Amino acid sequence: HNGKLCKLKGIAPLQLGKCNITGWLLGNPECDSLLPARSWSYIVETPNSENGACYPGDLIDYEELREQLSSVSSLERFEIFPKESSWPNHTFNGVTVSCSHRGKSSFYRNLLWLTKKGDSYPKLTNSYVNNKGKEVLVLWGVHHPSSSDEQQSLYSNGNAYVSVASSNYNRRFTPEIAARPKVRDQHGRMNYYWTLLEPGDTIIFEATGNLIAPWYAFALSRGFESGIITSNASMHECNTKCQTPQGAINSNLPFQNIHPVTIGECPKYVRSTKLRMVTGLRNIPSIQYRGLFGAIAGFIEGGWTGMIDGWYGYHHQNEQGSGYAADQKSTQNAINGITNKVNSVIEKMNTQFTAVGKEFNNLEKRMENLNKKVDDGFLDIWTYNAELLVLLENERTLDFHDLNVKNLYEKVKSQLKNNAKEIGNGCFEFYHKCDNECMESVRNGTYDYPKYSEESKLNREKIDGVKLESMGVYQILAIYSTVASSLVLLVSLGAISFWMCSNGSLQCRICI
């Protein structure tokens, strides 16, 4: 991952900044910058967002509201009850120091605090018919004063009620008058409520006091790749198909172990950190130390980045220098085999997901714990399936590479015959000098055995068991695999060879 928040398929997220979902939807004055928000790819909250409900109280069923919003990608904020005409018999300019803005008392931008007009609070009834052709999110509140005197001074009615009804919602609220500790300079409380109004449905408000009335509502448009994440990451000019709280993932790998919460087309989250597919040879310690064997393909974004291909070729060293050249036929066979294998694994496992966190309130801790156990169970199954699949494929890959290298080895052996000696570690020792032209003939299969047989015969008789390297004779190393990324691999195959001279070296080696 890149540690950044990015656009998702070209669409920017909605960053709530210092506000949370509650503050944004109710219209906390400190969240005025969010009022123009219309569309987004996903919503970003920060872990310690401080601006929620400015007048103390709870947004009821907040967790369910977050779940609903996680599939919303755009909205239209509109005046559901026009301020100047909807409440002619009531005062609608209630403000509070708890919702101060720029040093002055204020109130929510989407709600109206209705109080008595003169000395009376006549029963009010108002309704709205949803003609938007889509779901409408309606929010309101109920004020709970701290004393009967406060109730009387604001609403005149000691036994007030609030009723809200639609086809799918029907509740009646009565204020709970009680002494409470002071929070944000208030002994009173406000509880906030919401409902989704279906197209064509009607919502009716009736009250004799204590109503925090809707002013603006939201017509919602769903987008199934949307979601809500909690993150401290910063926004950058970048684009992605998959976003996590820790950063964007741009990967076609089937798995990731970065974060379980994802938005967009994302690899499946697994616990494993070692889900690797081999593309090189079986481990040979001396070669492995030099980083030549054991190439791997990573299938977990965050564990290993991208696929690494092994390729086969020849390396030689003689009086004229040293050089490398790919054996294109065996390399292409290996590439085709690995590509098919990788595609097979991805096809089997690479279903892209959006995974969002589930919200539970403080009273639902047991449910949250149960949900976590269920999620953990599914996660263990996914991890096991992934590891088992790759384990089985790896064994076949190792066998496949062994065969490829063996074929190259036999190709060289059949040409050199007794003009060189096998020394048991995949290397041959020449009994004759071999210049670049000679080396090329070994690589392309045109090695002239009779041409060098007499010199080889004489050297075999002279050496008589002495280690060949100390006599200045020449080696050919018969097994060799270097490691390159897919891009470098293609470039390498396009070149005939490249040279690395070893000044004054008397050794001649050709490596497979």
Rank of each mutant, 00 (worst) to 15 (best):
Lys348His: 13
Trp304Ala: 00
Gly313Cys: 04
Leu487Pro: 05
Gln475Gly: 15
Asp327Tyr: 04
Asn340Thr: 15
Thr262His: 09
Glu393Trp: 10
Trp304Gly: 08
Lys433Gly: 11
Ser234Thr: 12
Gln352Ala: 13
Glu469Phe: 07
Ser485Ile: 06
Lys433Asp: 02
Phe498Val: 15
Lys457Ser: 13
Gln415Asn: 13
Leu292Gly: 00
Ala484Gly: 07
Lys274Gln: 13
Leu281Ile: 04
Val374Ala: 07
Gly426Thr: 06
Phe430Cys: 03
Ser456Leu: 14
Pro450Ala: 09
Tyr312His: 06
Ser414Thr: 13
Gly310Asn: 01
Ser456Gln: 02
Arg290Leu: 01
Ser502Ala: 13
Asp375Val: 07
Leu403Val: 09
Ala420Ser: 02
Gly321Met: 03
Gly426Leu: 14
Glu359Cys: 09
Ser505Lys: 04
Ser441Val: 03
Pro260His: 15
Tyr452Asn: 10
Asn436Gly: 05
Val483Asp: 01
Lys417Met: 09
Phe378Trp: 07
Gly280Thr: 07
Ser453Glu: 11
Lys421His: 12
Glu368Cys: 07
Val356Ser: 10
Leu253Cys: 14
Leu253Tyr: 10
Met500Asp: 01
Ser322Ala: 13
Glu364Ser: 04
Val374Thr: 12
Gly323Glu: 06
Asn239Ser: 13
Asp399Lys: 06
Glu455Thr: 07
Ile284Ser: 14
Tyr324Ile: 06
Cys434Gln: 07
Ala326Gly: 04
Asn336Ser: 14
Lys421Phe: 10
Tyr314Asn: 11
Gln246Ala: 09
Asn503Trp: 10
Ala248Glu: 11
Phe430His: 13
Lys348Met: 13
Tyr431His: 15
Glu422Trp: 06
Thr397Arg: 04
Arg460Val: 08
Arg396Val: 01
Pro450Phe: 12
Asn425Thr: 12
Gly424His: 10
Gly302Arg: 11
Ile335Pro: 01
Ile338Phe: 05
Ile476Thr: 11
His259Ile: 02
Ala248Ser: 15
Trp311Ile: 08
Lys421Trp: 03
Pro450Glu: 14
Ile263Ala: 01
Glu368Thr: 03
Lys411Tyr: 08
Thr351Ala: 15
Asn257Trp: 06
Gln256Val: 01
Lys372Thr: 10
Lys457Cys: 04
Ala355Ile: 10
Glu359His: 06
Thr397Val: 09
Thr305His: 14
Glu265Ile: 10
Tyr474Ser: 09
Ile476His: 14
Tyr480Leu: 12
Pro260Asn: 00
Leu370Ile: 08
Thr279His: 06
Gly494Ile: 01
Asp376Gln: 15
Leu477Ile: 11
Lys421Asp: 07
Lys372Leu: 09
Ile423Asp: 08
Tyr324Cys: 07
Phe293Pro: 02
Val278Asp: 03
Ser330Glu: 08
Tyr409Leu: 04
Phe428Cys: 06
Phe255Asp: 02
His401Pro: 06
Asp464Thr: 09
Val374Cys: 06
Leu379Lys: 10
Asn343Pro: 00
Ser344Thr: 15
Asn361Gln: 10
Tyr447His: 11
Arg290Ala: 04
Val483Glu: 00
Asn394Gly: 12
Asn252Glu: 00
Leu487Asn: 06
Cys238Leu: 05
Leu389Trp: 03
Thr331Ser: 15
Ala495Trp: 14
Pro245Asp: 04
Ser344Val: 11
Lys451Thr: 11
Ser470Trp: 01
Lys413Glu: 09
Gln246Glu: 06
His236Thr: 09
Ser497Thr: 13
Ser470Asp: 14
Gln288Gly: 09
Tyr409Val: 06
Lys373Gln: 10
Gly298Asp: 04
Ala495Val: 04
Ala478Val: 12
Arg460Ser: 10
Val488Gly: 03
Thr339Ile: 09
Cys438Met: 15
Gly494Asn: 01
Ala326Glu: 03
Leu403Tyr: 07
Asp435Ser: 13
Pro267Phe: 04
Gly303Ile: 01
Glu319Met: 10
Arg271Ile: 01
Glu422Leu: 10
Asp380Glu: 14
Gln332Pro: 04
Met500Gly: 13
Leu398Ser: 10
Val488Met: 10
Ile296Gly: 02
Asn436Glu: 02
Ile510Ala: 15
Ser470Met: 02
Met367Arg: 05
Leu408Gln: 10
Cys508Tyr: 14
Ala355Glu: 11
Arg282Cys: 06
Leu389Pro: 05
Ser272Pro: 01
Gly357Glu: 05
His236Ser: 14
Thr273Asn: 07
Leu281Glu: 02
Arg509Leu: 09
Asp402Ala: 13
Thr331Gly: 04
Ala248Arg: 08
Phe430Met: 09
Thr273Ile: 12
Leu388Trp: 13
Glu422Cys: 06
Arg366Glu: 11
Glu395His: 11
Ala495Tyr: 12
His316Tyr: 09
Asn369Pro: 02
Gly494Cys: 01
Pro260Gln: 00
Ile423Tyr: 09
Glu440Leu: 06
Lys329Ala: 14
Asn394Ser: 01
Met367Val: 06
Ala420Lys: 05
Thr351Asn: 10
Ser322Met: 14
Pro260Glu: 02
Asn362Met: 10
Ile423Val: 15
Leu403Ile: 14
Glu469Tyr: 13
Val405Glu: 08
Asn239Gln: 11
Gly264Asn: 04
Lys457Met: 13
Lys413Val: 04
Val278Gly: 05
Gly280Trp: 07
Ala334Leu: 06
Gly472His: 12
Leu275Cys: 05
Asn404Cys: 03
Cys438Thr: 09
Lys348Asp: 00
Gly302Tyr: 08
Tyr452Thr: 14
Leu489Asn: 00
Asn394Thr: 05
Gln288Phe: 07
Ile287Ser: 00
Lys433Cys: 08
Ile263Leu: 14
Lys373Cys: 04
Ile296Cys: 10
Lys365Arg: 15
Thr244Lys: 04
Asn436Asp: 07
Gln246His: 04
Leu408Trp: 07
Ile284Asn: 12
Thr331Asn: 14
Asn318Cys: 04
Thr331Gln: 02
Phe299Gln: 04
Trp499Arg: 04
Arg276Glu: 05
Asn503Glu: 00
Lys341Arg: 15
Ser492Leu: 14
Asp435Gly: 09
Thr244Ser: 15
Arg460His: 14
Phe430Glu: 09
Gly504Asp: 02
Ser330Lys: 14
Lys467Phe: 01
Asn239Phe: 07
Ser486Asn: 04
Met349Trp: 09
Val405Gln: 15
Val412Arg: 05
Gly337Asn: 02
Gly302Asp: 06
Cys427Glu: 03
Asp327Val: 04
Phe400Asp: 07
Leu458Arg: 10
Glu265Cys: 04
Arg290Asp: 00
Ala326Thr: 02
Val261Phe: 11
Leu389Ser: 00
Glu359Thr: 12
Pro450Val: 11
Ser286Ala: 13
Cys242Gln: 11
Ile381Glu: 07
Gly306Leu: 04
Glu387Pro: 03
Lys413Ala: 15
Asn252Lys: 11
Leu487Asp: 00
Pro245Asn: 05
Thr354Asn: 15
Gln507Thr: 09
Gln317Thr: 13
Asp375Ser: 07
Gln256Asp: 04
Phe255His: 04
Cys242Trp: 08
Gln256Arg: 07
Thr383Leu: 05
Gln317Met: 12
Gly264Ser: 02
Ile338Trp: 04
Ser502Gly: 10
Ser441Tyr: 03
Thr339Phe: 02
Leu468Asp: 01
His236Ala: 13
Pro450Arg: 14
Asp464Val: 08
Ile335Phe: 13
Tyr447Met: 12
Lys406Ala: 03
Val261Cys: 01
Glu469Lys: 12
Ile249Pro: 01
Gln475Leu: 05
Gly337Met: 07
Ala386Ile: 15
Lys329Ser: 12
Leu408Asn: 07
Leu490Asp: 00
Cys427Leu: 09
Gln246Thr: 14
Gly465Lys: 04
Lys451Cys: 04
Ile463Val: 15
Tyr314Cys: 10
Thr446Asn: 06
Pro450Asn: 01
Glu422His: 04
Gly298Asn: 10
Phe353Thr: 08
Lys372Trp: 03
Ala233Glu: 02
Glu387Phe: 07
Met349Ala: 09
Arg443Leu: 02
Cys511Val: 07
Phe498Asp: 00
Ser272Cys: 12
Leu292Cys: 01
Asp380Leu: 02
Leu253Trp: 00
Thr331Pro: 02
Gly465His: 13
Leu487Glu: 02
Ala326Leu: 08
Leu253Arg: 15
Glu393Val: 07
Gly298Phe: 06
Cys266Asp: 10
Met277Glu: 04
Asn283Trp: 09
Leu275Gln: 05
Lys417Arg: 15
Ser505Ile: 10
Gln288Asp: 08
Phe428Thr: 04
Asn333Asp: 14
